[in-house]
Every structure is written in structure tokens, then in C-alpha cells.
Amino acid sequence: MNDIVSLSQVAKRYTRGKESVEVLHSLDLKIAQGDFVALMGPSGSGKTTLLNLIGGLDRPSDGDVTVAGERIDRLSGAALARWRARHVGFIFQFYNLMPMLSAQANVELPLLLTSLSAAQRRQNAQTALKIVGLDDRARHKPNELSGGQQQRVAIARALVADPTLLVCDEPTGDLDRKTADEVLGLLQTLNREHGKTIVMVTHDPKAAEYARRQLHMDKGTLVPGNTP
């Protein structure tokens, strides 16, 4: 299988005041197309930082980051934004939906950046909502939906532009077990039946079981024994 994510000797340092803290150290990672990877590890181990680098939300201090065939660490701000719109779907712990927009309008948001007509945008958003089983809630605003439903709207939003990669940061961290299992089952279906590559950060070992493989991080590096 082709590698869709390739990180080589990646380091990330943050400067807080006069202090510089390195949160990722010379990290190498490859993720194949169609993989479903769970990134696990204690708080502060660098999981979210790594996820942000893969998703093009942040840049490495050193090293190369190639995702979907593009050296994204070299892209300008605007080019990186366009790249994200084309290749990455994001799912957050707290859903991050626009509270004033309906589910349908939230799902349509990434499509505003495409050249699709209004009718096509509507159609695609309806299809994405159907995939997550919420086509009957299209007109509801986020505060009229349960946590699980909001997360499914967020998944539909992540899916709607047909991205190369889904990046999920603790997608079930705010959900009860039953709802979390439904959401994870949905992600698993997207991976197995629709071939979506998924990188998911989680603290939850049960959630990680839905992934094809688990990577463990500690103190800014991948733990070798758990890295296939």
C-alpha cells in the first residue's frame, strides 16, 4: 500500500516566554492509505501536536512532513489552507460546530470553498448526513441535537468534501460509552467500507480497539515496541 503520511526526523519546539520546550523529538512515522491508526499515550506525550502536524494545522520545527504526496511543511499559509480544504477532514472532541447554523449548513461549510453550485452543495451535504444517519435532522441546530448526534454532524462535515485523510482528536472524549461506540463504529465503517484513512488520538483503550493499529507515544516519541 502507498504511504499517505510520511514523517521524517520531525521535531517540534514551542517557545513560551524565554523557555523553549521540545514536544516531539526526531520522530519518524509512515501511515499507509486505508489505514486506521489510533495514537495513544499519556497527556503531554505529543499526540495532539503530532496530529496537528499531520493535519497541516501546525508546522514542524525540523524534519519533513509529507501528506497525500505533498511536502506540507514547505507550503505557504494560504496554500496550506487550500491543501487542508482538499485533503483533510477534521473531527474534534467538542464537535466545534457553528451554533447558529443548522446541521445541513454546518456540513455545507467546507463545500463553500469549492466551485460546486448551491444545489450540488445541498445534495452532497444531504448525502453526508445520510451516511451518518442524520438526514432527518438536517434542519436542526447543534443545541437541538444530542452530543452523539452533534459528533455525527461533525463527521459528516469532515466527510463531505471527500478528503484523503480523516484526522480525529479525541472524537469520543465527550460522549458516553454507548454513544462513543456508535461513533467509533461509524468511523470503522468509513475506514472499512469507504476506504478512508483515519488518524485518531484517544486516551480510551476501548476506542483504540476500533483502529487497525495502535501507536503509543511517550515524551515526544513513538514507543518502539508498539510501532508495527
Binding site: 499559509g77 494560504a78 487550500r82 462535515r157
Partner: peptide, 11 residues
């Protein structure tokens, strides 16, 4: 921030 995450440029 979410808009920017989705691919809306700074401009």
C-alpha cells in the same frame, strides 16, 4: 479557528 481548520485562508 474551525473555519481556518476547514481551509478558509487568513484573507
Amino acid at each position: 479557528a474551525v473555519l481556518k481548520t476547514l481551509g478558509f485562508t487568513d484573507a
